[in-house]
Write a protein that binds this DNA or RNA. Structure first.
Lengths: 214, 214, 214, 214
DNA sequence: GATGAATGAGTATTCATTCAT
DNA sequence: AATGAATGAATACTCATTCAT
């Protein structure tokens, strides 16, 4: 039901401009408070132009979310430590950086849970699946605790995502960000289990300068 | 801002009926798709009556969310095991039961993140604060891993809430529910740390028949 | 179609309180912006009470205007110089005092031109008639210029009323008020005719301290 | 605040048609009794079209009044006698013709006193200012009585306008119109002052056939 | 007499969408 | 491709009025 891709170079640029304008609008006011003419106003175009490239407000919204998900994926791809837990720590840190530095964009992502939960979960399911594969392997190697790797994956995502929702609200500046990452990474590593055996990990994390971030 | 409380018994009943009708509507169609007249139709009243008790659709929405939060709080209050981790397991299980058995209601709760994030986080902050107090004490007694107890609290909430979002979607029947609780509880207990030292806990949990639920 | 007069003392007081409340409301917001419940709120009563004493918003409005007209009539009655022109001057001054010191009340009077022009003109016609009678006599005595005394009466009213509309807007404090009265009184006395023969009058006016007013 | 001017010829025509329709509606029923859909019905358009050109009912009302004021100004421009008082007589006559021949239009003008007194007085202030300039010069030349020319101007306007309000009510046909003009013009010329020195003027007025009008 | 809950017709306003230019 | 005028269904909200208590 989506419109065919633009055929001319000019069309490509127009569509992209509309997409950017829509992202700004949705970020500023949220899906329901934005009208199609808000978007075309923001893009400096006539209303009619919108319907050359998108069928619907929902149609652009999906395209915007798709774009944001790709950006987030890109942003997280960097995390590539060899150590399992260190990698988690790094991923969590990166996720929080994204959420807190671009809160409006992150909010659009979360809004998709309400507007179209399919695209919301489709994204996380993709992440969960690749997580789960790695977790399964790690279990086989006795590197991590046993349990359904898929559910473990969702636990990991839960922490990143919900802390993102929580801390992208008011902004999360440097020292606090590090504290969140540190405690949450320990939680991921050891849960609430007693005995602070997390020291070596935390030290290695510090040494490698992971959470130095933003 | 809000309307004054009804002055007669009849008014109290009418207001309550509107609240219930609104809850049904919001659960069925979501905040933005519901019109005020949907609510009054559902309640079998005239539109004008709505405005005797609420200023706005947002006003009822807040009242509905408030009510749901109270119910959820009530629902979770039951969890009262003496063992720390067992208690977490139980709380998680109860939360998932609520989310999965009343997915529409739970969805309203989540929608408040978009509609009015203040009331969304106000609720979780209340929970987080009481969690944090207990976690702090537990840390002092070396029962759990070190770390900022407030952040640990948010990690716990993250898992319950996000798994709730995840699994309330398609429904989560008995065996699956238990698997989720088991793996997530282990995650809470031990994170991803290797060595399956969770056996005693898990067994005791089974023995006490916690996740038997729904 | 109007409600019967209240039978009890209590009823008389209630009706009067509603009337005063209505006057305040109409003065503050104008007829159309005032609702019946605004009036009962202002009076500290329940809506239903209003309909015990008035049929309608228009019904109170008429009663309010009637009351204002009586007050204005009362206010103007004082002017009682023996000299024709001096009397006009005094009447004009009093009228302006009323208009400028109670601009909200005066505005209600003017609003009746739009809301119910019958009551508006009924008032002025009453005044015009008594004016005309006196003017006719004065013409017979060659005291004033010839012409249809009714139309002359309307010219006099025009000046008072329109200057009232004009100067009640921003308020008209002492010195300006005197200047307006002086020039307008001369205009009434001599029109635009050349030769400033108005001096004696003006002096007598000053001597008798007419415009000392407010 | 107001909507941007239409960008196409078609838009210009549509806006003008709406304006005319609004004028008819306001004239027939008065500002408050007219709904936006009354206007669009009268214009044979969809409701939405209204909001392309006006923000509000008040917005069109202002535009309508503006248009009427321009017409009235145009209508009065004709009066161009060389004699001061003759000119006043002519202006008064023209004003009454406008008020009495187009009572509905004139009523809209007066209604603006209630709906938006700023635009009401802005119009008269413009007139008063140009009047005052001429009156000042005439005073310097000893052609007219002394006094604040601005206030004199408002006295002149008062008579035209209030007689307009008075006589546009029931209609004012030929002989009566002449009588009103004659007496009022004398009033303007000589006020109530005794001694009928106005004869020459009145005769010249008659000779030049001023009030022959309608 | 006084109250205030209930009503529902009426009005303003928005906005997605179409289409002629 | 781009424009922007036109549409009208949909919705929020008000308010005069009634009536049971």
């Amino acid at each position: 039901m989506s419109k065919p891709a633009p055929k001319t170079q000019r069309g490509v640029r127009t569509r992209a401009a509309l997409l950017r304008a829509a992202e700004r609008c949705f970020g500023d006011k949220g899906f329901h408070a934005v009208s199609v003419s808000d978007i075309t106003d923001e893009a400096g175009m006539a209303i009619g132009t919108f319907y050359l490239y998108f069928t619907d407000k929902l149609d652009v919204f999906r395209a915007v979310v798709d774009h944001i998900q790709a950006e987030l994926r890109q942003h997280l791809r960097n995390s590539d430590a060899e150590d399992r837990l260190l990698r988690e720590r790094q991923g969590l840190s990166d996720f929080l950086v994204f959420a807190c530095e671009r809160p409006k964009i992150f909010r659009i992502l979360q809004e998709s849970y309400i507007v179209d939960s399919d695209i919301y979960f489709a994204y996380f399911e993709g992440i969960a699946a690749s997580y789960a594969k790695r977790l399964k392997a790690a279990q086989k190697n006795k590197q991590i605790v046993e349990g359904d790797p898929d559910i473990q994956a969702w636990c990991l995502i839960a922490i990143s995502n919900f802390l993102g929702m929580r801390y992208s609200r008011a902004g999360l500046r440097k020292p606090k960000h590090d504290a969140v990452v540190e405690t949450a990474a320990d939680f991921i590593a050891f849960g609430l289990a007693p005995e602070g055996r997390g020291r070596p990990l935390r030290q290695s994390a510090r040494r490698s300068g992971v959470a130095a971030g933003h």
